[in-house]
Every structure is written in C-alpha cells, then in structure tokens.
Design a protein around this nucleic acid. Sequence first.
DNA 1: ATAATATTGTTGTAAATGCAACACATAAAA
DNA 2: TTTTATGTGTTGCATTTACAACAATATTAT
Lengths: 153, 153
Amino acid sequence: MYKTKHFTDSLFYQMELTAKYCRSLGVQVFAKLNFPITVDEYSAMDVIMLHDGICQRELAKLILKDRANTGRILNTLEEKGYIERFVDTKNKRLVRKMIITDEGKKIFKKASDILKEHLSSIPKILTDEEKETLKNTMKKLREGLKQEVEMKI
Amino acid sequence: MYKTKHFTDSLFYQMELTAKYCRSLGVQVFAKLNFPITVDEYSAMDVIMLHDGICQRELAKLILKDRANTGRILNTLEEKGYIERFVDTKNKRLVRKMIITDEGKKIFKKASDILKEHLSSIPKILTDEEKETLKNTMKKLREGLKQEVEMKI
DNA sequence: ATAATATTGTTGTAAATGCAACACATAAAA
DNA sequence: TTTTATGTGTTGCATTTACAACAATATTAT
C-alpha cells in the first residue's frame, strides 16, 4: 500500500500513545487510593508550591491548560478549602494570586506520601539512565516546539 | 518547603506536557492546511490501512480510545464517505469491519503529501538518533505500563 | 484627552472524552 | 436445556477541554 513511513510510527503519535498510558495510570492510582483531589488538582498544587506568588495565567502556561480551565481547577481547589485566592498586582496589573492553605498542605503531603509508597510498589520499567535521557530529550523537544506551536494561553 | 522530588518533575507529568505540544502542533497543522479530516480521523485511517480486516474494538485498542469514541470517529469517516463498514465474523462473533474507500484513499494520500511537505519545513529539533532512542524508550515504557494500567477498552 | 491596543480573568458553548448501562450474539457451564 | 459468562458495539450522560467573546484595567499611540 504505502511505502512511506506511517503517521502512527511518528514520534508525535507515539508520544500521544505513551502519554495516555501515563495519564491513565495517574487517574487510576488517584481513584484507587481515594484521594480527595484529582491528578490535575494535585499537579496544580505542586506547581503553585514551586512558584510562590504565581498568578493564574502564569500557572496556566506552566500546566499547559487554558485560562478558563485553570480558573475552574482553582475554583474547585478553593471550594475544597485547599487554596485561598487574593487579588494582587503584577506589572501594575490586577492579577489573582493564590496560596496553599494549611489544610491544603496537609492533604498534599498525605497524598504525596501515599503516592510515593504506592509507586514504589510498581516494578521498575526503565533504568535511571533511560529515564533521565528520556526527560532530557523531551525537554529539548518542548523547547523546540515552543517556537512552532501557538499555545493560546 | 518540600525536599522530595516534585510530581511535576516526574517522567509521567513531563510526558503529558510534551504530548500536549505534539497534539497542539498536529491540530494546528491540520486546521491550517484546511484538511477535510481531523488528526484523529487521519490516525484512524492510517491504522486501518496498516491492519487489513481490523474490527472496531481492535482499532480502539490500537488508538487507545474507548469503543464509544472509536465508533463515533468511524461514524464521521463513514458520513464523509472515506470508509465503508460491513458486518463480519471474528472467532464466530459478529464484528463490524471497515475498508477505506477510493475517495478515502485519495484524501489520505493528498493529506499525507501536504503534511510531509509542511513538516519538512519545520526545523529539525532532535537528531535522528535522539528520535530513535526516544521512540524505543517510550515503546519500552508502554510495554511495561500495559501490565500496570487497565485500559478498559 | 481620546482612541486603540494589550493583559488578565470569567462566562458560554461546542466538541472530545471516559465510563457505565444496555442490547445482542456466542460460548461455556450447570 | 437453561443459566451464566464473555465479546462486541451503541447510547446516554457527566466531565474535560478548547476556543471565542466579554469585562475590567492598564498601556500606548494619535
């Protein structure tokens, strides 16, 4: 039929397949362990803690979700009492910033511990070296793709 | 704050970020070039051509979308006249199989040519060796994760 | 000063996705 | 034979997501 390389052999397509396994694993582990937060909420909290005084749009750019989506995730985190939002200024512009509440820190810590314990029970698939190489190459790919892809965030 | 490694540094999370760039690139290229099909429809056609006489559920397992989703993608491809579906048996069970129509092959070929030309204009981000290593490591990871993740397809 | 532009966040809406429930047919077990 | 389990596909629904439009404010240009 087609002598040329198939699209499904491409790096981009295989990246999508692999990411689906990773995402499914995350969702299933969070559900199985009865976490009070979703993977996305956990990731958002992780990024917020890593970047003190971050505003919503900066957070959106880091988690690669659009502003609407990011705002909604923060709404649920706020409703659950795990973050508090307040208005501040960045470059003389009004922005909404957020902090993790004590309750949020408690939940996050607990989730992290359970997660670590559970993940350690999963047999090692890649060597440390393979993992490092993989992460570095993906980072390089992301840096390059930033020039080509408009992310609209 | 947290001395331990952050979740956002993890392989799984970074895979998700990277896949988002890849997916956005694909969607944007398909839209920009005014293709009559989406990335998902194109991928599905590619897989169908690679696996002659494949049934819907087998296709679903390969593209990692659930049966409902896969059926809907095939509905739109059928409406557009790019595939034809027929009932057959597999292990004495009724299944729906599909073939690409002549019109479908024409569109696919045209899309492939335009795609190839367009992608060649994107500067090379990774070396061939990096790409091969990346694909191989991701494949190894997927094989390992298959044991851990229930995909419900 | 007024108008045009840009940044940040929210709301609305359509599309994509995942999952459970269902229908239907076959295989296996009682 | 009747019952139970399994495999395949569809429908319905709730969630997630992307994208456009909007509001509010600040910056820049005219």
